[in-house]
Each structure stands twice: as structure tokens, then as C-alpha cells.
Simulated assay, not measured.
Amino acid sequence: MTASATVPARADGRALRAAASRARIAAAATTLFVEEGYAGTPITAVARAAGVGVQTVYYSYPTKADLLVGCLDLAVDGADRRDGGVDLAEQPWVRAVAAEPDPVRRLFLHARGSADLMGRAGAVLDLVRVGAAGEPVLAAAAERDEARRRAVHRVLVEASARDGVLRAALDVGQALDLVTLVLGPETWNALVRRGTWSGLAWARWAHRTLLADLAPSRFDPDA
């Protein structure tokens, strides 16, 4: 084997080690940020929890805001954006929603998948949204996350419209707004993280609420 043939292998090894280090740092930071607060967690504590040096943290995430975005990436996609992972639109539950022919079951699959997503990311999204007011990096991350979730919710709404099970009084945009609100981090954090609900109870509530709000009803004069 020539020297040039070994370069890609070494490069791949370095990339894998860097990805593993970023994941370890983001996982440690997520726990600390959620438990101790974003502002109250120093980078030295993150480095100690991750078992790396402080400079390694800064090499992976140049600012604290970048680190919180890395935590969000890990929660949503399973990896830092730079390291791939399964993109939200390609995750199995989203594919299952798109493939499900029964509109009632499709809606429940979507609510259940959203519960799993919020279970991973709801607390981090709370931190990102609070920090977004004074930090452009976090503001951009919050906007990007909502746009991605809306794109996934659109899969559900457009399937419902296509199948004729969307209330006539609603256009696709209005229905999408409803789904984004009901299945968003605001309701998850209020009912599950700060309340007493289980994730399954939240999914069942969301399912009932969206059925009532989206589906045609004999009591609706516009249905």
C-alpha cells in the first residue's frame, strides 16, 4: 500500500474521532445546561463532564452558543450537523406518517413521533428560544428548527388535504399553523417537563385535539 493510499484512512479516522468528541461534548453539555441552566454552566464544567480539555471544547464549538446549537443538533438529528446523522425529514417516524393510508392512524403516528422528538429536544429548544433574544447564532438555530419541524408537519397536513379529511374552513397554511402549535415545544414543556403528563398522554391529547380541529365535523357549518 502506498503512502498516498493511507491518507484517506487517516483522515477518516480523524473525522470519526472528532465526531465522537463533538457528540460526547454535546451530550455532556445538554445534561448540564438542562440541570444547571445555560448561563450557569461554565465551559470548564462541560469539559470535565465530557472528559476532555477546555481547548477541545472550544475547538469543537468556538462559542457557548455554538455548543448549545450542537446540543440541539444532537437531540434532533442524533449528531452534529457537520457529522451527518438522520435528518428530521428522513427519520423513520416521518416516513411512516407519509406511508400510512388511514388518516386517523396517520395523525396518531405523527403525534407519537413528535412526542419522541420533543422528549429528546424539548428542553434544549426551551434554552435555545430563551437565549435567541440576545444571540444571533441561537436566533438562527431557532428559526431553522421551526422551519424544519413545519416542513415535517406539512407532510401530515398535505396528506390530510389530499385525502379530503381536512376541514373545509381551513387552508393548508392555517392547518399547518395549528399542527405546529399543538405539537410544539411550548405545549410539551408546559404539560410534560413542567407539568405531570407523560409523553404518551401528551401524544394522545395532541391526537384528540388535532382530530377535533382539523377533521370535518357535522357540527361545523363550513365542513
Rank of each mutant, 00 (worst) to 15 (best):
G37K: 10
V7H: 09
R167L: 02
A123E: 12
A206E: 00
E186H: 05
R120A: 01
L107Q: 03
P136E: 09
D83Y: 04
D80W: 00
A15F: 09
V86T: 15
Q91K: 06
D145Q: 13
T2M: 04
D145V: 05
V128N: 06
R218W: 10
A9C: 00
V97P: 00
R204A: 12
P92W: 11
H153T: 06
R167S: 15
V76A: 05
W205I: 01
A190D: 11
V57N: 02
L127Y: 13
R194A: 12
T56R: 08
A206K: 03
E186I: 07
A123F: 01
T63I: 13
P8F: 07
P42M: 13
R218I: 15
A142E: 12
A28L: 08
Q55E: 15
A26P: 00
E100I: 05
T209Y: 01
D102H: 10
R148Q: 14
A223L: 14
A212P: 00
V57D: 04
N189P: 05
R17C: 11
R129C: 07
S217R: 12
R150I: 06
A19W: 09
A5K: 15
L16A: 15
R204V: 06
A132K: 07
P92L: 03
R95E: 03
A98S: 13
A142V: 04
R17Q: 15
L88N: 00
R150W: 05
V165R: 14
T41Q: 00
W197E: 05
A123R: 05
S60F: 07
L176V: 06
L191C: 14
G199N: 10
F33V: 05
P185D: 15
T30E: 08
A3R: 10
L72F: 04
R129D: 06
A5M: 08
